[in-house]
Amino acid sequence: MLQVISLLVENKPGALMRVTGVLSARGWNIDSLTVARTLDPTQSRMTIVVDIDPELRRQVIKQMNKLINVLQAADLTDGAAVSREMALVRVRAASENRTGVLKEAEIYGARVVDATQDGFGLECTGSPEKVEEFIDAMRAFGNVDVTRSGIVAVSMESRKVRLAPPVQAGAAANGTEELPSC
């Protein structure tokens, strides 16, 4: 099953490394990762797909939430969420196969984004399983080159993002009293 972590992060240099560092420090691989700015340009939305033990996933999400640049890390694995992926596929199709490719593409709702004498560029969007099947179908026609976007997901539950309020700058904010003389 897909294990999906969705993060809202501050759009700052290093934020991505901090998040992926939580996984790489444990020697875990990331199946897919997407990042893009949100409507608010100071924030980014990340979707990470991993394959790890559920108990550890909970731990990892807590650790991600602890990062200063992370506004919210949420587990979409078991909740109501929609996930989609896009694949751009270049398929070489000899002239006798061209109709077949187009028919198959139509079944999957894929769009032709480029057509040459050698073949087609196709865009397919859908659940990761559907994208997988489409790629398999295209491979039947010949050599394919595939670039997958990785999964983007959105939670269908409203999740309140709890943010920290501003605080006063300077020593008073930290409750630090007078320092010993040195």
Binding site: L71, R162, L163, A164, P166, Q168, A169
Partner: peptide, 12 residues
């Protein structure tokens, strides 16, 4: 200009 407030929304 001295900074009077700091805002770290993700630092909860």
């Amino acid at each position: 200009a001295p900074v009077s407030t700091i805002h770290l929304p993700g630092y909860k």
